[in-house]
């Protein structure tokens, strides 16, 4: 069984995880053309080599980021999303308080 390192739960069987796709920089929604949106939403690099991806540990509902070599399918490193995303992006009407 392939093992995947989870920052919260440690090494676990791959069947406990779901891949959430490439980590992409968040676009500035107010500046984006339709073509840019299509690029952001639908197109993926599908790179051969080192990629940075979202992964979900399903039993704990924990999303994290992992660096994986797609040529060898080895996980090199995983870490909490807070390492990359330090500040929240407000979505919709402002909420009182941060969850």
């Amino acid at each position: 069984m392939k093992l995947i390192p989870c920052p919260l739960n440690g090494l676990r069987n791959a069947e406990e995880f779901v891949c959430g796709g490439e980590v992409q920089p968040e676009p500035d929604a107010s500046q984006l053309s339709a073509a840019d949106w299509a690029q952001h939403v639908f197109h993926r690099d599908n790179r051969a080599g080192l990629v940075r991806e979202w992964w979900l540990h399903v039993p704990s509902g924990y999303w994290f980021i992992a660096e994986r070599d797609t040529l060898s399918d080895r996980f090199l490193r995983s870490y909490p999303a807070s390492e990359l995303f330090a500040k929240r992006t407000p979505v919709g009407p402002a909420e009182p308080g941060d969850r």
Partner: peptide, 12 residues
């Protein structure tokens, strides 16, 4: 304690 799969369903 662990959050994992048991008989393929999520458990605590």
């Amino acid at each position: 304690m662990a959050q994992t799969l048991m008989a393929r369903v999520s458990v605590i």
